[in-house]
Design a protein around this nucleic acid. Sequence first.
DNA 1: ATGGTTTTTACTGCGTC
DNA 2: GACGCGGTAAAAACCAT
Length: 317
Amino acid sequence: MNMLKDSCPECRATLVDDIQNGETICSGCGVVVADQIADNGPESLNSSMEDKMKLARATGHTTYSQHDLGITTEISISTKDYSGNTINNQVVRQMNNLRKWQQRVRVSTSRERRLSNVFTKMNEACNHLHLPKNVQETAAMIYRNLEGHVEVKGKSVVSITAATIYMACKQCDVVKSMEEICKQMCEQKEIKSKTKLAGKYYRSIVMEMGQTTAPIVTMDKYISKISNMTQTDVRVERLALEIAQKTKDSSIADGKAPNGIAAAYLYVASVLLGQNMLQRDISSVAGVTEVTIRNRCKDILTKYKLKIALRPSLAKQ
DNA sequence: ATGGTTTTTACTGCGTC
DNA sequence: GACGCGGTAAAAACCAT
């Protein structure tokens, strides 16, 4: 993955990391080269303890996303000593016992078990969502900071975890909806309720942690996100951003779903440039219906007296 | 609970290819 | 005739009170 970071295989322009979406994007042609910014940590997602041991490496830094900050010493499983000489069987047995007990002691208290559980879920969710490492670390740090401020016992682990990831995304300028996060964490039938609950927890965390203002995701982030997901022509994206910028002080966004408005900006921009993206495609990616896009388009066009024919065939005349 | 607002659903007709 | 679009009414969802 790292070798892709320097220049685009398509046009050889410089690549930039888009931390919003955890992607690496070409500054020239806008193509998404790598959908996950390289993570050089231990590659031990679902492996056994034994594999973890083999792959373990001293990284020289601590991590918030492990319950013990990732600083424990682990007893090697090798049957050779430091100098390469074979260890006799009795010592090997002793070391196996030691290792077993170390594991038991390591996550001994209920708090540690809880942290371990939460961070495992967090890790899985962040991997599935292709979130960069900094988001995961931020989420873990937020969760740690909850202790003493917000009571987590008795609350849904999934929803609390989702809420912290959501907050971490906002802090790291990554656009991810609560629903997207919850989709990766629970069964189909639970998504709705858990998402709702996570939203509730998120608000209470914001209140309790003394943050008067939650970070605000701006319109341009929504637009960039949707256009990245639809492989939109960069010119369309730029125009959409431009229109959004010019109309941002108006009241068309009040009380409306931001992704619907972002979708409408993109649609209007695509029509203006003769790109004719389909309402259906944009709406499915943006998570709104075509009707919503049409209504937001109407708002934008009437408000700004932009006289363009939305029907592409008419626009040519 | 309620009432106001927004979004979705489901359906319609129109023009174009 | 299929497709994409624009419109509408009613239902559903959401939110503050």
